[in-house]
Amino acid sequence: MLALDSLSKHFGGVRAVDGISLTLKEGEIFGLIGPNGSGKSTTINLITGLYTPTTGTVRLDGRDLTAMAQHERTAMGVARTFQNIRLFGNLTVAENLWVAQNGHEQRRAHFLGRWFRAGGEHSPEIGELLKFSRLHSKRDVQASALSFGEMRRLEMARALASRPRVLLLDEPAAGASREDGQILAERIRETRDRGVTVLLIEHMMELVMGISDRVAVLNFGRKIAEGSPAEVQANADVRAAYLGSKHKDEELIHA
């Protein structure tokens, strides 16, 4: 459904992303890994439109998104989280979800109903998202007062509030404990089961390898491997990228 075709982004002489082609299938969890600076976050920024690609295209169900503004891409069904969490700290938890509801019903509603109706932060849909992210007891808390883990959960819920077809998660487990990682894995699976395709960038290998249907590996802006988690873990180029050319078998798994 989401297809990147020889996508490149150059910053001056630096080729942050250098001709990446990827195709995500409907309803899969696709892991994108690679050492720091390999172009993973840049790839997400190119998909959402935060950056304009130097060359290449981004397509969703055959429709070219490359020239669209960010909000238009969100309307098409692209949502994301950020590596360094970006919540609206001045709004409550429920309001953070409310502002993200630009989705289907909202879009059909007339102008006044869409923008100038009070109390929409108590809608059933938001209640359901709050339950999903276990933030129900915090609904009226200022987002800036949440704990780190709660912030991550809220940010993912906010992305889901826009009713995406594809969700781009940029290191959702950064700073999380192993148990938190397992809970997160469960929540990502549930998200997929709701019909949302997931692109997951993550350094916690246990998480990526555990839940991804397929994995692609980037190094210096290029895709060096793609396949099932087992195939990728066995790939010599991948081991070289992560561990240098001398490697031991177990290390990649815990890298």
């Binding site: 935060l50 919540l87 709004l91 502002v99 993200a100 100038f116």
Partner: peptide, 22 residues
Amino acid sequence: TRAGAVLRAVGHDETAAQSIGL
């Protein structure tokens, strides 16, 4: 209303506001 929350959201973080489709 939602308009008020949206104005404040944009005031707080434009990048995040764009990412949720504003």
